[in-house]
């Protein structure tokens, strides 16, 4: 067992855990997109960033693949973290506005505008399908090809893979193919925010103050 601090609370954690696993165990809500139980962490979407360290020397790390260590000080909701997460969702939403998963994330985080030119890509390159195919289905029928903006998910050499069993796991796990959101129309892009629960505590503190899921209760109370 190791001892670490999460949002000011000293907790005991299992040696092999990541920060994300520790936070989830203690009920802290950290948004994720490219992370799934049962698959190796990708560290691609960067939404699960948390701030670690004390005083001046803090940095953001992805909690999904950062191993816990003794004396680690983690803060899951700071201004720096929230700013980063919002920008990342904004970037993803501009790429792929028709994903309900992304729209929900945007709504939950209070992303109310997209300042970039809107594209209509079909894929956010989170790599869930690639890891699903390799790690759970044992097929390795798809992978990444290309570099930078040329990067894409495809079977080797862009030809139909002979190890693909058409099992559909890649489609099942995709956060974009499934649940197409019919809502947004460019240029507004954001579908109207079904839900907005930015923790209002941030206006006064640089930490989230309640240790439950960000329920938005205080936000609604203040609005009233």
């Amino acid at each position: 067992m190791k001892k670490m601090t999460i949002n000011g609370m000293v907790v005991q954690v299992e040696d092999h855990w990541t920060i994300l696993e520790a936070c989830r165990f203690y009920g802290m809500d950290i948004p994720t997109l490219c992370y799934r139980d049962g698959l190796s962490p990708g560290g691609i979407c960067r939404l699960c960033v948390v701030e670690i360290g004390k005083g001046e020397r803090t940095k953001l790390v992805t909690s999904c693949n950062y191993p816990v260590e003794d004396g680690l000080v983690v803060r899951t909701h700071t201004k720096r973290v929230i700013r980063a997460r919002k920008m990342l969702v904004e970037l993803l939403l501009a790429r792929c506005p028709s994903s309900k998963t992304l729209q929900d994330l945007a709504a939950k985080m209070g992303v109310q505008r997209v300042r970039f030119k809107v594209k209509d890509e079909k894929c956010i390159l989170c790599g869930l399908c690639v890891r699903m195919c390799e790690e759970q289905m044992g097929a390795k029928a798809i992978g990444f090809a290309g570099r930078g903006k040329e990067r894409r998910v495809t079977p080797p050499f862009d030809i139909k893979s002979d190890v693909c069993r058409n099992c559909g796991a890649c489609m099942y796990i995709c956060p974009v193919c499934q649940l197409r959101c019919q809502g947004p129309e460019p240029p507004s892009v954001v579908c109207g925010a079904c839900l907005n629960v930015e923790p209002v505590c941030l206006q006064d503190n640089d930490d989230v103050m309640c240790y439950l899921d960000t329920c938005g209760w205080c936000y609604k109370m203040k609005k009233r």
Partner: peptide
Amino acid sequence: LVDESCGRCVPCREGLER
């Protein structure tokens, strides 16, 4: 850098392109 980014993580790939 847009051409040279590996394109794996979102901030670098999307951020540079934007």
